[in-house]
Design a protein around this nucleic acid. Sequence first.
DNA 1: GTGAAAGCGCTAACAG
DNA 2: CTGTTAGCGCTTTCAC
Lengths: 340, 340
Amino acid sequence: MQAAKPTIQQISNTTGYSVSTVSRVLNGYSRQYRISEKAQKLIKKKAEELNYKPNQMARGLRLKRTFTIGLVIPDFANPFFAIMAKHIEKAASLSDYSILLVDSDENAEKEKQQIKNMIARDIDGIIVAPVGTEKNHFNDIIKQKIPLLFIDRYFPDMDVPFLSSDNFRGAYDAIKLFIRNGHKKIAIIKGDNRIEPVKERLRGYINALKESGINVCEKFIAGNGFSPENGYHTTLELLELPEKPTAILAMSNLIGLGVLQALNEKNMSIPSDMSFIVFDDQPYVSYLNPPVTTVKQNSEMIGKMAFELLLKKISDPGHTPSSQLIPTAIIERRSISQQK
Amino acid sequence: MQAAKPTIQQISNTTGYSVSTVSRVLNGYSRQYRISEKAQKLIKKKAEELNYKPNQMARGLRLKRTFTIGLVIPDFANPFFAIMAKHIEKAASLSDYSILLVDSDENAEKEKQQIKNMIARDIDGIIVAPVGTEKNHFNDIIKQKIPLLFIDRYFPDMDVPFLSSDNFRGAYDAIKLFIRNGHKKIAIIKGDNRIEPVKERLRGYINALKESGINVCEKFIAGNGFSPENGYHTTLELLELPEKPTAILAMSNLIGLGVLQALNEKNMSIPSDMSFIVFDDQPYVSYLNPPVTTVKQNSEMIGKMAFELLLKKISDPGHTPSSQLIPTAIIERRSISQQK
DNA sequence: GTGAAAGCGCTAACAG
DNA sequence: CTGTTAGCGCTTTCAC
């Protein structure tokens, strides 16, 4: 075995066959071009021997297809996104696709920059969970006719397919569960107002309340970011209210951590002093005190389907994948009290 | 703005300057070649106007430098790795590098396959947290002289630089803390025996015990995998022992989750019935009942340094980065009882 | 100051 | 059945 990367040229030289013949054999066109058995054997043997792998740069340049997709995620430290990424990668590698990864860090400018970079890298398609506050830069992708798919967050007024949890329903179900347990003073701690899943969850909250004839109290709709800090401060504020809520729905696992911290500090127990549901069924919630009821998002399915939809679009540009809302599930544990 | 991707050719055509001049200007060689102000202005303006970005495929093919590094991680769902990845990506994007991501899923065969793929993609370097049970395939990378760096896991007998936590010290400190609190019957639940950090942590465990004149009991060294399931079953076994341990050190956050589950099921409380320390200081551990003492690994620093070391090696192939052990820290919370 | 042309490694049209 | 050749978009040597 030698150091330099073997090229098709080398195989051509050492076997005596032309580069085209070598290329044909190696790409599985032997039948079609009726290459002789002898040539096939020899070329394959040599390729094996040299441990030949076609240079993907050259291939991509020529084919205008790179077998690479871009993946842009707002925060990798958030297990919700990490797990989604895991399953996208898994599906992709099964189809010989590679992933170019970007963590936009909830920063629209970085997102924009890196998307430009990905376009320059001739990716075949791109999956993005957008920061959600800006969308102009996506027009570049669309104009270049690069297949694009949004996950989790999306822009309903944009003609781009997306995959997201059924956020309306998730929140709706959670609030209904509170109500069934006798709660009427229910607060919700939100992520960034501008992003769609937040709007949808809020809609679910309001709908559930109204449907049950419960007044929607503005004071109980609070917070504005997907961070533990937001969860923490917002909870503290909620606890200062003259009429405190008896139940809180946190819009993400990160927010939930902050809620827990605030409650802890104030020596309030779940569920006796406060009932609690959180979005995202992370493994650790079963071991919290008490185990916390969650709205589980199927990030595994979102990830898997995301790649498959994108691939379909890549393989058949005529096809337009339709957006889908993936069902959520309430995982009941022991964080809700019975109110009389 | 137009749909097709602008090329250097187009700029050449529309400005009347040759492709070489355009290339020079756009690559910042105007001074060196003493390109006229007029030409510079015109070319830059046109490039801006067309929103030109050099095609990285073509560039990579020509330059033999792709500004891409490979990153291979055994499990993205493990926040320890996800956070490391986040910081690698962050450092990389600051230096205009992109990340090709693989989740090897703790599967040596996939790792091997995907590394071959990355080589074919002409990546400039590669960072891998190896599955840890096989290493032959890394010779391909070395033979091709592609800069390689291991993180977290590594092979001490291989001449490849690595960055890992000071695992020996982390475990040693944890055990010493147990001992200071009067514990003598201390169990450790391990990850896969074959990987280096596990060996090191075990060495720390044994050393701490011996140093304090405590007998090392084989029964207390248990488990063999980084999964919650292993944590769960091993804990159950430990609890069956005629002489039960009074303290457990779990070698990872995932194992720790399993320990928690087993303890819960057996109605054992921390720390009254069992003292507990876990590797990895995940955000949620503060909100467990009780908050759990951890061995914190500095995955942020590992990630950041990993990219920087690799980049140095890429930029100066003569340079060989030296391996480093990154200090761990004990974060004391309330999961350890005083034994009399 | 600028341009022509070679060539990175590959695929595919065209030519036998 | 196989080979020659053009060209993907770019950088860079050589030439003027």
